[in-house]
């Protein structure tokens, strides 16, 4: 008998430990659930952490209204199957209440607006900790993120004044009105997530798998057609065989042409690819520090 864990088991164990700490240290935590693979893995880990008990916190989805219909379908089925609690924050509500206004133009996206809705959902439900599936390998501002990320009463991240995080001791102490963002799979890479999904046989939305889709090209990115997509006259709809490496808003998530229609093929593709998965996200490309700026304002 070898008394050491494989790296995936060690990462799993670490994530379970953190999720249990969240449940123990906070009064009213929640799991942010986007319907993307990382949040699906987090939910799977939460089930493991409390089995045979139920996951003791709700799933929270900030719905921009511009999601892929497949994502929403997947989310609703999962919640129904497991009897999980789901809270949805609608960006449309924030728009209707005049708290945010829609971006204009062809590249308009609601991605930036969701921060407002997220902060409002946190406030209205008095969540003191929100877990999310962000990983440090995704983006360079995230490489400096803590497992327990402290946010002030405005939901802001102060990267220069983060609490040091040592060993496996997590400090979730806070003042009234402040809250935490917590990232149980911080130490996982994109490959770890895919290998874990395969090893654990976790269901995913079909968007991740190769399928024929009506798409159009813009600035070298393949976008899915859909009712919210404003197309320029020269942008022609065509059918291509594509899949998505990440799932965000339809307006900012690009597809890749791919024949990978099962997990093994996706893993091969991820292994061979030379761009990061966020390379298909136009929300990160707005500036060098786009992610850092959004995080400071309260984005994940």
């Amino acid at each position: 008998m070898k008394y050491n864990l494989t790296h995936l088991k060690e990462l799993e164990s670490e994530a379970i430990f953190i999720i249990r700490e969240v449940a123990a240290q906070f009064e009213n935590p929640a799991l942010l659930f986007s319907g993307g693979k990382d949040s699906i893995v987090c939910y799977h880990l939460a089930k493991k952490a409390f089995w045979p008990g139920k996951v003791p916190f709700p799933l929270v989805h900030v719905d921009t209204g511009h999601n892929f219909p497949e994502t929403i379908e997947f989310r609703d089925e999962l919640v129904k199957k497991d009897g999980a609690e789901l809270i949805v924050g609608l960006v449309q509500d924030s728009i209707d209440q005049g708290k945010v206004s829609e971006e204009k133009g062809f590249n308009a996206s609601r991605n930036g607006l969701q921060t407002v809705t997220l902060l409002e959902t946190i406030e209205n439900n008095k969540f003191d900790a929100c877990m999310g599936g962000a990983r440090r390998d995704e983006e360079k501002a995230r490489a400096k993120e803590r497992f327990f990320s402290h946010r002030d009463e405005f939901g802001q991240w102060d990267p220069k004044n983060q609490r040091p995080e040592l060993w496996n001791i997590f400090n979730g102490m806070k003042n009234m009105g402040e809250n935490f963002r917590i990232f149980p799979i911080s130490n996982w890479t994109e490959m770890d997530v895919w290998q874990y999904i395969l090893a654990e046989n976790i269901d995913l939305p079909m968007l991740y798998f190769s399928h024929e889709r009506e798409v159009f090209m813009r600035d070298g990115v393949i976008y899915s057609d859909g009712e919210f997509m404003n197309k320029r006259p020269e942008e022609k709809i065509e059918k291509r065989v594509v899949r998505f490496r990440t799932i965000g808003d339809m307006t900012c998530t690009g597809a890749v042409e791919s024949p990978a229609d099962d997990l093994t093929k996706i893993i091969e593709e991820v292994a061979a690819t030379r761009t990061t998965e966020r390379g298909t996200r136009s929300d990160d490309k707005r500036s060098e520090a786009a992610m850092e700026d959004r995080k400071k304002q309260g984005y994940f």
């Binding site: 864990l5 494989t6 790296h7 290998q195 090893a199 093994t264 893993i267 292994a271």
Partner: peptide, 12 residues
């Protein structure tokens, strides 16, 4: 390093 069998057997 990314072949599934090998991947599941790696140490951290």
């Amino acid at each position: 390093s990314n072949s599934t069998a090998g991947y599941l057997d790696m140490e951290l």
